[in-house]
Amino acid sequence: MLTELEAHLEPDEGRPGTVRPGGRTARVRATVLRAAGDALAEQGFDHLDLAEIARRAGVGKTTVYRRWGSVAGLVADLLTDMAEQSLPRARTGSVAEDLRANARLVQRTLTDPRQGALFKAVIAAAVCDARTAEALHRFYDTRIAEWAPCVEEAVERGELPEGTDAREVVRAVSAPLYYRLLASGDPLDEAAADRAAEAVVAAARAGVYVVRG
């Protein structure tokens, strides 16, 4: 029996390559991805089950298996959606303020009860699952590309030296925050975020991130 959501799908919707952005299939995708994110945050990657996610989402198992095929495929799409839904970069006109905003956004995300648990689960899964690792790399590449113009514009304004590697600067802001989340267990608060941003700005102004040769 078709679920309420599936009953509204047009014949071609749900097949790979036929999903129309904003169409009815998009609503099914959003519901399934929300259920997958909840399950991942609660149970971790090893306990994910497509049938259980279908039950949580209120859609048929065949819809989930046909659309995503595997847990790794579903997690990859979840990361794609997270990258698409993430907040846009700051535009304050100051590299110090822009990178502070970036650090605080990362800090809020990692300390959010759902999002923090979700990221821990995905990172753990990426260690042993190549498809999840690839999806995680794409997620961070998307986010770094979103924020890199903050640094590029600072170079144009003369705030930072010519040749500064914008992507390396952005990576360096969040690195100590992820270290606190995954390794040290030290407090991951707004003060830690501000210190991370301030340290990177000081290093960038000193030319630490200038590409040599």
Rank of each mutant, 00 (worst) to 15 (best):
M82F: 05
G163R: 07
A202I: 09
S184W: 01
A193T: 04
V169Q: 01
G37K: 12
L160A: 01
E168N: 08
L48P: 00
S94K: 10
V211R: 13
R56A: 13
L136S: 14
G23R: 05
D12H: 13
G14E: 06
C128D: 13
A83K: 00
V71A: 03
R34K: 05
R131H: 12
V95P: 03
C150N: 14
A101N: 07
G207H: 07
A126S: 15
D77V: 05
A197Y: 03
T92W: 12
A124T: 11
D112M: 01
T92K: 12
A126R: 04
L74M: 07
A130M: 10
R131G: 09
D129L: 09
L74Y: 00
A203R: 15
G158M: 09
V151R: 11
R29H: 12
Q43C: 01
Y178A: 13
V170Q: 07
V210F: 03
A39P: 01
T111Y: 07
E146C: 04
A54S: 11
G58K: 06
R56P: 01
T63F: 11
A203F: 01
E42Q: 11
V151D: 06
A39I: 03
Q43L: 09
D189A: 05
L136M: 15
R91V: 13
Q107Y: 00
G69N: 12
A175E: 10
E84P: 00
E162G: 03
E156M: 07
R171F: 08
Y178L: 14
F119L: 14
E52W: 00
E190A: 15
V169A: 04
A7I: 10
I53T: 11
F119A: 12
R138A: 12
K61E: 10
E159N: 03
E153P: 00
